[in-house]
Amino acid sequence: MTDQTDARLIPSFVEQSARQRVEGMLDPGSMRELLSPFDRMTSPWLEQQGVVPQFDDGVVVAKGTLNAHPVVVAAIEGSFQGGSLGEVAGAKIAGILELALEACQLGTPTAAILVLESGGVRLQEANLGLAAIAEIQSAIVALRQHQPVIGLITGPVGCFGGMSITAGLCSYLLMTREGRLGLNGPLVIEQEAGVGEYDSRDRPFIWSLTGGEQRYATGLVDAFMGQSLSQVRAAVLDCLQQGVPEQFRSDTIEASLATLGQVDTEHQIDATRARAILTQEQPS
C-alpha cells in the first residue's frame, strides 16, 4: 500500500513518460489515443539516415475529458530524439489541434493541452519539421479564438527552437521549476557567443536565466506550478475555467520589442538585471 500523504511517494509529473502524462491528465477511462503506437506510424526519414525510429514518433495525441470538459491533449516524449519534431510527430500535433477546432465549430467547445518537451525541429527532417511547426502555430492561433490552448513546460528537456515560439502563442503557458524556455538551447548559445558569455555546463546560471521561476517572474508565463500530477492538473483546470483570455501574449509584441530595444548590450546580463529589464523595474 502506498501512503498518499508522503510527498516522496507521489509520482512527479516531470519523471513520467508522455503517455503516462496524458493518461494522468485526463479523466479516468476517457482517454482515446489517436494514431497509437500499434498503428506503426513511424518517421519514414529516420531509418533512411540510420536512426532507430519509435512507434509513436515521440508524440502522444488523445481526445478525452478533463473534469468533464472535452479536451485534446498532445504530449511530446522528450526522451526520443530530444523531443524534436519531424513530419509525423508535427502532423500529429497539428492534426489534433485541427480536430479540436472542428469540434468547436460544430458546437462542442474543445480545449487543447500541449505538453511541450522539445528541442525544436528534428534536424534529420529539417524542412518538413519546420512546415509542421508552422501548421501547429496556425492551428493554435485559430483554436485559441474559441477555446483555451494551454501549454505546459515541465522539464526535464524544456522547450526550445520553433516550439518556444509555439509556446508563446498559447492562451496560457504554465511552467514548473524544472522546466526551461528559450529560443536557442544553452549549447547553441555557448557555441555562438563563447563560454565566457554563456557556460552551458553552469546549471544554476542556465536555470537562473531560462528556468520556470525566472520566466514566471518576468511575466513570460502565466503560472508557476508544483511538480506533482495533482498540482499540474489543478493549474490546467484553473486556466480552463478562465476561458479565452481578453488579450493574448503574442498581441503585446510591440511593447516587448520596445523593451528589448532599450537593453544595454555592453554589459554582461544576469538573472537580476534580466528580471529588472523585463518587468521595467529598477534592480534593488
Binding site: 513518460s17 503506437p37 500499434f38 532507430v52 519509435q54 512507434f55 516524449e77 526522451s79 526520443f80
Partner: peptide, 18 residues
C-alpha cells in the same frame, strides 16, 4: 494482450508485442 513498454532513448529500447 497487445503490449508496448520502454522508449527509444539513450541506453533504452521499446518492445511492442502484437
Amino acid at each position: 494482450n497487445r503490449t508496448l513498454v520502454g522508449y527509444v532513448g539513450s541506453g533504452d529500447l521499446e518492445v511492442m508485442i502484437d
